[in-house]
Simulated scan of single mutants.
Amino acid sequence: MSAVRTVLGDLAPTDLGICDAHDHLFLTSPQLPGQELDSTDLAAQELAAFHGAGGESVIQWTPHGMGRHASELPGLSRATGVHIVAATGLHQAPNYAPELLTRLRAEGLARVFVRELTEGIGGTSVRAGMIKVAGGFHGLDAHARWTMESAAEAHRATGAPIAVHLELGTGALDVLDLLCGELGVPSGKVILGHLNRSPDLTAHREAAQAGSYLAFDGPSRSHHATDWRMPEAVQALAEAGFAGRLLLGGDTTTAGARAVNGGPGMPYLLRRVRPRLELAVGKAVVEQMLTVNPGQAFAVEWE
């Protein structure tokens, strides 16, 4: 049966409802000192605010070793009524201590991914529903190739979709060349994140033509011009016939960005981004981006 694997079990793709296709309830990294998302109470408040704005599901892209708090996710889902999908995977190398990466190499990274997809995360029974990896700035270093090769192996074993952090929105075609070209992952199982951060309409169209999903997530913290160019990029893709490949997310990665701390947070996606996009492409396309497309992008034929 085709289903989206949430932290409370498998869900029909059509039952996700209004979905934030890329966000974080928990996230810690040495790259973001003092901005950790590590409070269960604040995560609950943020999730409740998202639900209050009409949100019904969240795909948490936080990967292995970055403070996922997997054991807390089922309770948060039950308490707020919001479906949550957890991730396995690995981010860029600077997010980790070298000894952790050494251990993962010895253990076998693909084996770790498969275990978290099929058995549970960190000794819990909470299973991941997707794999998150990361590219580099306009290219792929050895770490990115290792993680993507491992993700491809885990995908072949489980069918799980692979979501990719594109550094500042760049390198989409290099990622597809590796994952889909060299490694044989079906393009429809690849979600490319942060396309709004590099409004290269030609690259966007080529990625959509290849068959991957394109996630527009933000708002940006440092490249503000990309926010007002994002509707233009979405409109160009929709008019070219690719409305069915587009996703929307909030990508809240710092404590200061949370709505409960005065930032835009998860509700911003529905409070501000949705109406702005509706002006560009109409309500029907935006509704498709928030409901139908996420169910298709994150669905898997789980055993």
Rank of each mutant, 00 (worst) to 15 (best):
H91P: 00
G295S: 07
T124K: 00
L37D: 08
L32K: 13
A49G: 14
H24T: 07
A225C: 00
S57W: 06
P30K: 10
L117Q: 06
A255P: 01
N196M: 05
G75M: 14
Q288C: 06
D217L: 08
P294A: 02
I18N: 03
G262S: 05
L76G: 12
L117R: 00
A48L: 15
G265T: 02
A93S: 13
V175A: 02
L176V: 14
V4N: 06
A49N: 14
G262A: 08
E119G: 05
G241I: 10
T202N: 07
E153M: 09
D23W: 01
E56N: 11
G244Q: 05
A210V: 14
T147H: 02
T118E: 13
R271L: 12
V4R: 02
T6K: 04
L277R: 01
E56Y: 09
H24P: 08
G211T: 12
A49V: 14
A151R: 04
G34Q: 04
L104S: 12
L192I: 02
A3H: 14
T291D: 04
T88L: 03
H143E: 01
E46F: 02
V58P: 01
E153W: 01
T14P: 00
E119P: 08
R221K: 11
G139Y: 10
L16R: 11
A43N: 03
L11I: 06
L270M: 15
G250N: 08
R221A: 12
